[in-house]
Simulated assay, not measured.
Amino acid sequence: MKTLEAFYRLKTAEDYFEFFSIEYDKNIVAIKRFHIMKEYGTLIKKGFENFNGDEKYLMDFLKFALIRVYMDYKHGHAPSAAEVWGMIENGEAKGCLACALSKGGCDG
């Protein structure tokens, strides 16, 4: 099981992708590393501000935030923290967030 303690030990962008078992294009991460991690830090700050003690929920948010930032940079757009946080309500994923957090993913 992924833990917050283990999350805090991550160092590189690749560590985060591997920790959450997220497939990624190494070239995109090499080129956009700083921007991806900067935006990711901004997004996860919102998650930590809203942390209610449910570590699994927070870990799901941390994973989705990385997926969201990576996909947005891959496609040329960077989201705000409010955009990502608003996609999770009451511990339930909405829309493609559910797909992103599922093992199979989705097409849309």
Results as ranks from 00 to 15, higher is better:
31 I>G: 02
101 L>F: 02
76 G>N: 11
100 A>I: 07
66 L>Y: 02
93 A>T: 11
83 E>L: 12
39 E>T: 11
66 L>M: 05
64 F>R: 09
25 D>F: 04
84 V>A: 07
70 Y>T: 04
71 M>L: 07
24 Y>K: 06
64 F>W: 12
22 I>S: 03
85 W>K: 10
71 M>K: 12
101 L>C: 01
54 D>T: 11
25 D>T: 10
84 V>Y: 09
34 F>N: 11
46 K>M: 02
41 G>S: 06
55 E>H: 15
35 H>K: 14
65 A>S: 14
67 I>K: 10
75 H>W: 14
47 G>H: 01
92 E>N: 10
28 I>T: 07
91 G>N: 13
84 V>S: 10
104 G>L: 06
78 A>E: 13
43 L>W: 05
92 E>W: 08
27 N>H: 12
59 M>C: 03
96 C>L: 12
69 V>M: 02
97 L>Q: 14
105 G>P: 00
65 A>Q: 06
35 H>E: 08
102 S>T: 09
86 G>M: 08
92 E>Q: 10
94 K>W: 03
84 V>D: 04
39 E>F: 03
33 R>T: 02
23 E>P: 05
69 V>E: 01
89 E>Y: 12
30 A>N: 12
23 E>H: 12
70 Y>D: 04
68 R>T: 01
24 Y>V: 01
102 S>W: 05
101 L>R: 08
101 L>E: 01
36 I>C: 08
39 E>D: 08
30 A>T: 01
101 L>D: 00
56 K>P: 03
64 F>A: 06
74 K>S: 02
101 L>N: 05
75 H>G: 15
82 A>N: 13
36 I>Q: 07
82 A>W: 11
36 I>D: 03
55 E>V: 14
82 A>Y: 14
60 D>I: 05
73 Y>D: 04
49 E>C: 05
92 E>M: 11
84 V>P: 08
97 L>M: 13
73 Y>W: 12
61 F>M: 10
46 K>A: 07
79 P>Y: 10
92 E>Y: 13
80 S>M: 14
92 E>V: 12
54 D>N: 15
104 G>Q: 09
36 I>A: 04
66 L>G: 01
66 L>I: 02
100 A>D: 09
86 G>T: 11
45 K>D: 03
55 E>M: 11
67 I>Q: 08
93 A>C: 12
60 D>P: 02
27 N>A: 11
51 F>T: 00
28 I>Q: 00
